[in-house]
């Protein structure tokens, strides 16, 4: 697979390591009420769809940026690549 890095252009997926569903950006507040249950769902439960999947890839052998890759889990076709930092900022989660 080729991942089209927003800053570096097309890169071989071998340069990356895979973390999982991009919902891992939405880390719950550990101080809030019901944090136990929220962290169980956050850490252990997944949508695991067949079809488009937004997921976190780390450019370990490149610029060490985190990317949000939208990829079809049935065809392995990659439809969009964003910097995870931009995605997190848009949610107000990153400075």
């Amino acid at each position: 697979m080729i991942i089209n890095h927003p800053l570096l252009g097309p890169c071989d997926a071998q340069e990356f390591t895979y973390l999982g569903d991009a919902s891992l950006i939405d880390r719950p507040d550990g101080m809030a009420d019901g944090a136990d249950a929220a962290f169980h769902d956050y850490l252990y439960l997944r949508d695991n769809p067949a079809g488009l999947h937004r997921e976190l890839w780390f450019h370990e052998q490149g610029d060490r940026s985190w990317l949000v890759v939208t990829r079809d889990t049935v065809t392995h076709d990659i439809t969009s690549v964003e910097l995870a930092r931009d995605v997190a900022r848009a949610k107000g989660r990153s400075a």
Binding site: G20, D41, L45, R46, D47, N48, P49, A50
Partner: peptide, 18 residues
Amino acid sequence: GNSSRMMAKAGMRLPIES
């Protein structure tokens, strides 16, 4: 491998990735 898709029909999310 289709566990998550099947159980989603019952409204469940599983601790599983395919």
